[in-house]
């Protein structure tokens, strides 16, 4: 009978330990690096398509591209904290970023000088 009790106790312990370990964070995918890469992709795409040629003024084509990016990915873009994705979820007063926000500093070279700008990509609240 004691052997049986020991077996049952071990099984319960093993089940509990396995469940606890499987619920820990390190077993789940970590999306932080991927989000950072996506944010950098948006910057590169804007750069490659000439959307930042007139910074700090974005031309309408760049605004269209940011709108398309939002439609395809659900990501809002902010330059220097100013919403540049013209979509209601990104610019409305109740809008703004969720906790999944990536902010990076980017150096922007113009004809005579270099500026550091804050580039933020996030999903809306």
């Amino acid at each position: 009978m004691q052997t049986l009790e020991a077996i049952l106790s071990f099984l319960f312990f093993f089940m509990f330990a396995t469940y606890t370990l499987s619920q820990m964070d390190y077993t789940k995918p970590n999306y932080e690096l991927y989000r950072y890469q996506l944010a950098n992709d948006i910057w590169r795409c804007l750069y490659l398509t000439g959307g930042l040629s007139y910074y700090p003024l974005l031309n309408s084509e760049a605004e269209n591209k940011l709108g398309q990016i939002y439609d395809g990915t659900g990501l809002c873009v902010y330059l220097q904290g100013v919403p540049t994705t013209i979509r209601p979820n990104c610019i409305s007063s109740g809008g703004g970023c969720s906790e999944e926000k990536i902010t990076m500093k980017k150096i922007w070279f113009n004809s005579f000088s270099a500026d550091v700008m804050t580039f933020t990509v996030c999903t809306p609240k």
Binding site: Q37, D41, R44, T49, I69, T73
Partner: peptide, 10 residues
């Protein structure tokens, strides 16, 4: 990932 193709389309 977001990329640009050779026709400059995102």
């Amino acid at each position: 990932r977001l990329v640009v193709d050779t026709n400059k389309e995102i």
